[in-house]
Amino acid sequence: MTVKIVTDSLGDIPSEVAEELGITVIPLNVLFGEGIYRDGVDLTTEQFYQKLIKSKVLPTTQIPSLGVFVQTYDELAEETQEILVIANSHKLSASYEAMVQAVGQMKRQCRVEVIDSQWVLMAQGLIVIAAARAAKSGASLDELMALTRKNIPRTDARMVLDTLNYLEEGGRIGKARAFLGSRLKVTPILGIRDGEAFPFAREHSRARAIDHLYDFATSFTHIDEMAVEHATTPDEAEMLAKRLKAKFPKTHIYRSMVSPVIGAHVGPRVLGVAVLGDRG
């Protein structure tokens, strides 16, 4: 029996990929004024960013109630005896905590293991995709856990932000606070270290910041999985993906959009690259 793979919507896995690989994605919620939207379900990424740019109130995000996680597990338990749940970084949201708590409240008998991916965005997504592929070809839950734990430190990501305001406002600035207060208009390039935002570099122009993403991706010598994602700048993402494809013609480059939940914290015009692979 195949192990079922569950994750949350912060992994930005495109729905067709999730469907193909049998990944169950639990949507997180976005609160915009009075409205509550399920990430990627009630509100498309495009609609969200249009609202974000126009709205004076900043959106906040929340995880769904515990019952949603419990129900998801119980439903899957009808088809399988083993579930692997891969959460986004517990330092960035309470998903992991809820995913673990939900295991104890299940009605059905099923072995469920929860792993903190320590990532969000497609970095989390690539780890989940790798696990789902292995599950499809018959790997056991123990093998999948070992694989996932091995893949977490092999994953890395960078994103170009337009501004740090959203991150600061939302209280998720982490060590990227070092880049606050710049008297020059600079484009920050962030990544994640130890589960929270980390300031890697800054460039004086967006074009050069995008070059930085390219240099980052091409610093890998072996690539298992790669993804390019954006929020409101499809052309830039397209250009970057093309450049990377020219450099790595054999690699499939996943294309995705930054989910509203993360979008609420990083703001529009975010552009990112995630790689699961090895360097040097």
Binding site: A94, A98, E168, G181
Partner: peptide
Amino acid sequence: KLRRPWMVASSVPLTA
């Protein structure tokens, strides 16, 4: 139980 309190961000930018 599951969420964390919001830390209010300063209304003025950090001036180093």
